[in-house]
Design a protein around this nucleic acid. Structure first.
Length: 320
DNA sequence: AAATGTGGCAACCGCCTGCTA
DNA sequence: TTAGCAGGCGGTTGCCACATT
């Protein structure tokens, strides 16, 4: 594993660590404790730079490191925290006991990122990849075609549709009140994404079906990049373990349910009140058990994650 | 069985921040 | 105020193991 043994210009060894080097490092730290990494290699009899020693210790040799495959709960925690924190691997790792930032980062890049992409989610924003949809033609049409928008409802999450419609509409008729309304809706949509990052698999599936039926869409252009509004809240999120996942506090003593699910439920209610009156339920989301294990099973579970009812008719005028 | 491709991950690199003199 | 240093962090590299052809 890693790189081939080599030395830098100062004669310090680079590349994979040998068991002998590991032993020296562990022995030294057991006696003197970690820290003062610059002088440590010399004192420990290692031909390594201090930085290399620190990385070896923090990423591999530390006794509290948990090795092995990430559990489903850990994976979900990483996804949730990443949706809030972004690529703050150390902050994410700090909330996963026994995991290092390097390990979390590697796991994200090799497993989770690909999974999100496969589900039609942007791994950076955790939002549905609307570039997969032919929204550019909608935006570029000189005469806004409502029927084409309604045609999309067959496979677009109502939240996405509502957000698109408000974005489109306010580009023509922006006023402070509507702007506020739009920002509120965007916040609610993003909150929903935190809870339902994987939900757009249904969206992607419908898109793929549409591709099969109608042929490939032309000029897929990124049209929507929601801003992650929860940056710099690292200190507000407590350590998350598998046992407290369901109720950890986010802000000011409010729990996840209040912060995420309430806006989400409100948004469902908005849709319900303004659409044809059909129910829009998140019950299935809340009641779905976390019991899958394999990657395919997880995908399957995630597809169920967003199986709430989509209103059969969605009135554009009422939405805005 | 050999060649080639791909995924996983340990380790490195370079930048940034905070501390201290 | 500023320069130097140590440590931390995120991005990237490159080797090994395994899968596929």
């Amino acid at each position: 594993m890693g790189r081939s043994p080599s030395s830098d210009k100062n004669g310090l060894k680079k590349g994979p660590w040998t068991s002998e080097e590991d032993h020296k490092l562990i022995e030294y730290i057991q006696v003197h404790g970690p820290g003062n990494w610059r002088s440590l290699p010399k004192n420990a009899g290692l031909q390594r730079c201090g930085k290399s020693c620190r990385l070896r210790w923090t990423n591999y040799l530390r006794p509290d490191i948990k090795r092995g495959r990430f559990s489903f709960e850990e994976e979900e925690t990483i996804i949730q925290l990443h949706s809030v924190l972004g690529n703050k691997w150390s902050a994410i790792a700090a909330r996963l006991p026994g995991r290092t930032d390097n390990e979390v980062k590697n796991y994200w890049n090799t497993h989770i990122r690909k999974r999100l992409l496969r589900m039609g989610l942007d791994p950076v924003t955790h939002s549905p990849r609307l570039d997969l949809l032919d929204l550019s033609s909608l935006l570029n049409s000189t005469q806004f075609n409502l029927s084409s928008l309604l045609g999309l409802q067959a496979f677009v999450n109502p939240q996405v549709l509502a957000l698109i419609s408000t974005t489109l509409f306010t580009s023509h008729t922006e006023n402070p009140e509507m702007l506020l309304q739009r920002q509120l809706q965007e916040n609610q949509f993003l909150n929903a994404q935190i809870q339902n990052q994987e939900g757009s698999q249904v969206l992607l599936q419908k898109y793929q079906e549409n591709q099969i039926l109608n042929g490939p869409m032309e000029n897929p252009t990124p049209t929507f990049q929601p801003y992650n509004q929860f940056q710099d809240r690292t200190s507000e999120i407590p350590t998350c373990t598998t046992s407290n996942l369901g109720s950890y506090n986010l802000v000011n003593g409010q729990n996840l349910q209040e912060n995420v699910m309430l806006p989400l439920q409100n948004y469902g209610q908005i849709l319900q009140e303004n659409s044809s009156g059909q129910n829009f339920s998140f019950d299935s989301v809340l009641s779905t058990p976390l019991s899958s294990s394999t990657e395919d099973e997880r995908d399957s579970y995630c597809s169920n994650f967003m199986k709430f009812e989509i209103p059969e008719s969605l009135f554009f005028d009422d939405l805005v």
